[in-house]
Design a binder for these strands. Structure first.
Lengths: 334, 334
DNA sequence: GTGAAAGCGCTAACAT
DNA sequence: ATGTTAGCGCTTTCAC
């Protein structure tokens, strides 16, 4: 492999001069610079980043912990992360955790073993829990999307409670009183906050909360399909269903249609996320739009700030805006 | 940071012994081993992978070039890649290229600058085109999904021609004669092979190819929606549409329904990929199922074989199986 | 403005 | 079985 020494020989200068020419061209004499640059291209020299990393003790890599890469919403977040990282000179080490804590901790080891400089966690859990960090050090991590209440690091999220309240109010405004909810995983802060928003709206409208109208799920198409089946099998089925993800909403709509009912004629359905498929579902889905890519770019920016010593105290807690998108899947009840 | 020297001091042995204890425990005396392991855990020692990489000249990272991370099919391939890489001790550096050649070449630089050991390319293009490799070296790369005809490296793909023929035969078998096709990008080998399969089937059935029935697209929902609009506006619209991706098929179905027509009553629609949404579309989509995750795991295995000197000549060209999945979106024409 | 040299943490060749 | 040491490629003092 052609290294800096070869280039130095070729240019008739010292390795230090080659290094300087490449890193701070302005401090070498123009004539030397020309010689060196010519030698660099003559030799087809590319700096060995392993050595650079080793020397500088910085990999310029970020680990990203994703519960499910194939989830359409997360895929958009990852796109945002990758674009922002690339733009700031960082690589992205992608890890699919399936929401498993042990797996997350194992991947977090990439930071403690210096394979990456920092980590972005898209789930509400601290993967460094078991890792030892020198006291007084800031955790090289940012928490995004599903955020810990007391995240020991910067975080980016949505005001899920307000968003869920907005969506529920939309349904109530249409005249619905029996509004079901297909939720995310029970222990997720996402679920907790959105349920809180849902209850806020019910309460404000004087509608009693009925726990037979809530059903847990896991954000997938299958979960929505199944949950809609049990909800519609109730004695007094709901006239509207609020799903905590668009995927569940699409699954739910399909189940309702297979029961011979119509959306929104018999049941209104609303989702959360605004994925691309939601504009093309039948009917198009009413939902809460989240700025998925922005979660990624914001998380990257905050993490790099942290890594490069531009972090602030207290850690920033960014809340991104949502938007209610009304489409054809919601209408007044019969 | 606690390094191997600290551990050696703590255990009262040399750094070499610590290294050996960690790499080949069996060659150190049991008593020494115990001392060292204790020191390791007492010091909370984690080997510095930057140094290991530098020393061994191997990063154990793979670069993955994806045209579009947010594409549901690719997301599944990436899941497969990540799982296999992780399992074999490699990290995945994910790069979103948007199909841009310059971007691909820039990312390929991660291999020439030794930030990664090898590369998986999911598009039919050699990103090392402009990079200089020592003559006689094998390119540290594998080409998957959309594969170059003369890929200078191992490859994994589908028999797209046969799959497209199978799907077209299904439509012909139902009685369709005017079968449109919404294609992928014009210059993609995927498009070329699938069009060839489509024409094979037409020809075998004695149906003349009509180029007014083919329409280019780019695999997205939007493209399917638009293309279906123009196809149905023809004087003699098709009775069936074969879409080169499920996303385009879902977009097309939605457009057809908005025209007041029914699927499959007025027009049958078929897709390609078998993404999760296709089971939940209305009607559920007839399609060609591809083993998306398997593309990823196969690509990783071949690449690591190559990197670790287990590559074979000639380079393996793997063809994965497809399956026709018949659902409700196709039926005999009126 | 340029060169000489130390040293980042680790592994492996060699010596004992 | 264990220790000593060179050296991977680079950046950065410190001299001149």
């Amino acid at each position: 492999m052609t290294n800096i020494r070869k280039v130095a020989e070729l240019a008739g200068v010292s390795v230090a001069t080659v290094s300087r020419t490449l890193k701070s061209p302005e401090i070498v004499a123009p004539s030397t610079r020309a010689k060196v640059l010519e030698a660099v291209s003559a030799a087809g020299y590319r700096p060995n980043l392993m050595a650079v990393q080793f020397r500088s003790q910085r990999t310029h890599n970020l680990v990203v912990l994703v519960p499910a890469i194939a989830n359409v919403f997360f895929a958009r977040v990852i796109s945002g992360i990758q674009a922002a990282a690339q733009q700031q000179g960082y690589g992205v080490l992608l890890c699919n955790t399936l929401g498993d804590e042990e797996t997350e901790e194992r991947y977090a080891g990439m930071v403690t073993t210096r394979k990456a400089d920092g980590l972005i966690q898209l789930r509400a859990s601290n993967p460094f829990g078991a890792h030892v960090f020198p006291a007084g050090t800031v955790l090289p991590m940012v928490n995004a999307c599903e955020v810990l209440d007391d995240a020991p690091c910067p975080s980016v999220k949505l005001d899920n409670r307000a968003a869920a309240r907005t969506l529920t109010e939309h349904l109530i405004g249409l005249g619905h009183r029996r509004i079901a909810m297909i939720q995310g995983p029970r222990r997720s802060p996402l679920t907790r906050d959105r349920v809180a928003g849902y209850r806020d709206a019910l309460e404000a409208a004087g509608i009693a909360f009925d726990d037979r109208l809530v059903h847990p799920g896991d954000f997938t198409l299958d979960a929505g399909f199944e949950a809609a089946g049990s909800l519609m099998a109730r004695g007094r089925p709901p006239t509207a269903i609020f799903c905590e993800s668009d995927e569940m909403a699409i699954g739910a709509m399909q189940r309702i249609k297979r029961l011979g009912l119509s959306v929104p004629g018999d049941v209104s359905v609303a989702g959360f996320d605004d994925i691309a498929f939601s504009s093309y579902s039948d009917p198009p889905l009413t939902t809460i739009a989240q700025p998925a890519e922005a979660f990624g770019t914001q998380a990257v920016t905050m993490l790099i700030d942290l890594l490069e010593g531009r972090g602030t105290t207290p850690a920033p807690r960014v809340v991104l805006p949502y938007e209610l998108v009304v489409r054809g899947s919601t209408s007044p009840p019969r």
